[in-house]
Amino acid sequence: MSDAIPPVVPAGRLAALPQPEFYLPGTGGLHLRPWTAYDAPALVEACHDPDIRFWNRPSLLDEAGAVARIARWETRRQAEEGVLWAVAPAQGGQAFGLVGLGDVDLAGGSAEFLYWLLPAGRGVGVMARATDLVSRWAFETLGLHRLRITHSVRNPASCVVALRAGFPLEGIMRGALLHADGWHDEHLHARLRTD
Rank of each mutant, 00 (worst) to 15 (best):
L114Y: 06
V9H: 03
V83N: 02
P18A: 15
P18S: 13
V9D: 03
L61H: 10
P50R: 03
M1H: 11
M127Y: 01
H184E: 14
F113Q: 08
A68E: 13
I52G: 01
R57C: 05
I70Y: 02
G102S: 14
I5E: 14
R69C: 04
P6Q: 09
Y23W: 10
A95V: 08
A42V: 06
A66D: 11
Y115K: 14
L84D: 14
L24R: 07
G166P: 01
S152A: 14
H184G: 04
M173I: 10
R77L: 04
L30A: 07
G143R: 03
E21D: 11
A111Y: 01
E80W: 05
G28N: 12
A42W: 03
H189A: 11
R53N: 03
D181K: 01
L98E: 12
P25R: 11
A107E: 13
G182P: 14
Q91M: 05
W85H: 05
M127V: 11
I5G: 01
G82Q: 05
L32H: 11
E80A: 10
Q78E: 12
G166C: 05
S2R: 14
A4C: 03
D195L: 01
P50I: 03
A90M: 02
P20I: 05
R69V: 05
Q19T: 12
V87Y: 06
V160T: 14
R193V: 12
F167W: 06
R13P: 00
E45P: 02
S135W: 08
H31M: 14
F96Y: 12
P18C: 09
S135P: 07
G65N: 05
P20Q: 13
R13Y: 00
I5L: 13
P25G: 13
G175T: 06
L133G: 03
I70H: 01
L169A: 13
R76L: 15
M1W: 06
L43P: 01
R129A: 15
G166N: 04
R146K: 13
A42T: 02
L17K: 02
L106Y: 06
H187D: 09
A128Y: 12
P119I: 02
L30W: 05
T75A: 12
T141Y: 04
T141S: 10
W137S: 09
A4N: 10
M173K: 08
L163P: 00
A46R: 02
A68N: 08
G29W: 05
L24I: 13
R154K: 11
A176H: 10
L142H: 00
H145A: 08
V134Q: 00
R136E: 07
W73Q: 07
G29N: 08
L101A: 02
L14V: 09
W116F: 13
G175E: 12
L192N: 07
